[in-house]
Each structure stands twice: as C-alpha cells, then as structure tokens.
C-alpha cells in the first residue's frame, strides 16, 4: 500500500526541503520505492538538495497540464535506484496547480511507489493545502522557537480540516520533527526545550535533528544528509525518524544530551 507523506511547517526556512530529501533517501535505503515531490512551484529547491538540478526536463506542472507523461518527469537518483524526484516548475506559480491535476498525479504515483513524500511550500495557501491534500502521514517540521511552533500549530489545524482524510472523517497521522535543535542553547533558555514544544503542539515526536554544519554541507554537495554522511548526527536522527515513520519502535534520543538522560526519554510521545 502506497503511503503519502507531507512534509510541512507553515513557516519557511525551518528545514522542510532538507527533511524531505533526508527522509526520502532514508526510506529508499530500506529498499522501498520512494518518490519525493516538490510542491514549491516557483521556488523549487528540492532538485538542488537532491543534486538533480541539471537533469530536470519536465516537471509537476507539465504533468498536470498534460504536456508530459509522469515517467518522463520522474528523475531517478544516481546513488539509490529506489529513489525518485518529481521536480516543481521554477517558471510558473502555485496557481498552475489544480486540485484535479494533483489528484490525478497522486493517483498515478500511488500505483508505482511505496512512499510518496510531498515537500510543501511555506505558508497556508494553495501550494501548501494541495501538498497536504492527499496525505496519510504528516511530518510537521518545527524549530524550537515560538513563531515556528505557532505556525506548526496552525498547520496541524489545517491537517485536521482540509485534507481528504479529514473530509472522510479519518485522521492524518501526525509526527513532529524538531529540527535545528541545540541542546546547549535550550539549556540556557535561548530556545524552547523539547518538552515545551511537545506540550504546546501535543502530537507525537518522530525525531530531533540537531543544528549542524553537516546539513548545510550536504545541501551544497547536492546530497540528502542521510546519503552525504550517514554517520553524522543529523543523518542518524533522520534515519531513526524514517524507521519510526515506517512503524518501527526506536528509542528517542536528544542529540547532545549526556547518556543517562536517554532512559528518561523512552516513550516520550505526547498524546
């Protein structure tokens, strides 16, 4: 059964695209056929982070408008043969996305892939609502600061109202992915702590990705951080998060926290 994941946040710059690429590569490494779909029409970035920007011929908007067939637009990753990219158009805007077109593309992708990961644009307008529309699972990317947390809260409300699942009376499975986390600064009170964020958002935590130069380095290399250096701290956090999304039980660790604290964090899953 194909699962559709939306990676969303409301706020920009919190790490949606980085997380989409990293989780996509991590799931593909499990030998499950995975496609990452860029919904950020007009401001595409996923192709760069995936290192495929020089291979884009057709894009999501071409497929929606019938100018190209889906297989023509899909780009297979050079490192992982189970990983594909469906890029966004850089020259159009979000109005080129139509609900019917997106539904058709999603339906077709579901026939061919195990995981479909939609990289949502920032905001709560058309692009973002269409990216979440067909999701079974939502990964809400949040930074430990108040504006990001409030925007995430807003997005969670939309996930409960504007998705296909919500309209059928079902729920979208929601996971909190805390990114750019800095334990030292959280201890000092410069950043919200994990517990504060969980208390406000009250959704289960799927991973804590530490603030790290490895992330920027990987982006500039054009590789998902889980492929660029799979033993770096952010890569380990993403790999664990992907296993949790796939249904495995993996103990949660706060990056940078001393051992002994780890035990406390078992079962740190809010309502």
């Amino acid at each position: 059964m194909a699962k559709v994941i939306v990676v969303t946040s409301g706020k920009g710059g919190v790490g949606k695209t980085t997380s989409t690429a990293a989780l996509g590569a991590a799931l593909a490494q499990r030998n499950e056929k995975t496609v990452v779909v860029d919904f950020d029409v007009g401001l595409r970035n996923l192709d760069l982070v995936m290192g495929a920007e020089r291979r884009v011929v057709y894009d999501l908007v071409n497929v929606i408008q019938g100018d190209a067939k889906l297989p023509q637009a899909l780009i297979r990753d050079k490192r992982l043969e189970t990983l594909f990219l469906l890029p966004a158009s850089q020259t159009r805007d979000k109005d080129s996305l139509t609900p019917e077109g997106v539904e058709k593309v999603m339906g077709e992708l579901k026939k061919h892939f195990d995981w479909i990961i939609c990289d949502s644009p920032a905001g709560i307008e058309r692009g973002a609502t269409l990216a979440m529309r067909h999701a079974d699972i939502a990964v809400i990317v949040t930074n430990p600061e108040v504006s990001s947390v409030r925007d995430s809260d807003r997005i969670i409300g939309l996930l409960d109202a504007k998705t296909e699942r919500a309209e059928r009376g079902e729920r979208v499975e929601k996971h909190l992915l805390l990114t750019r986390y800095d334990q030292v600064r959280a201890e000092r009170g410069d950043m919200l702590k994990v517990d504060d964020v969980l208390e406000i958002l009250s959704i289960p935590l799927v991973g804590i990705v530490p603030e790290s130069t490895d992330v920027l380095k990987a982006s500039n290399l054009g590789a998902p951080v889980t492929l660029a250096d799979s033993r770096s701290a952010p890569a380990l956090a993403y790999l664990d998060a992907a296993r949790r999304i796939a249904g495995e039980t993996v103990p949660m660790t706060i990056p940078g926290e001393k051992r002994g604290f780890l035990g406390k964090l078992f079962g740190r899953r809010a309502a």
């Binding site: 709560i124 409030r150 925007d151 809260d153 807003r154 969670i156 409300g157 939309l158 409960d160 009250s202």
Partner: peptide, 8 residues
Amino acid sequence: REPVRSGQ
C-alpha cells in the same frame, strides 16, 4: 475533546 489549534 482535542486541542484548539492556532487559527481555529
């Protein structure tokens, strides 16, 4: 029975 989210 559930949290009331920002914007609601």
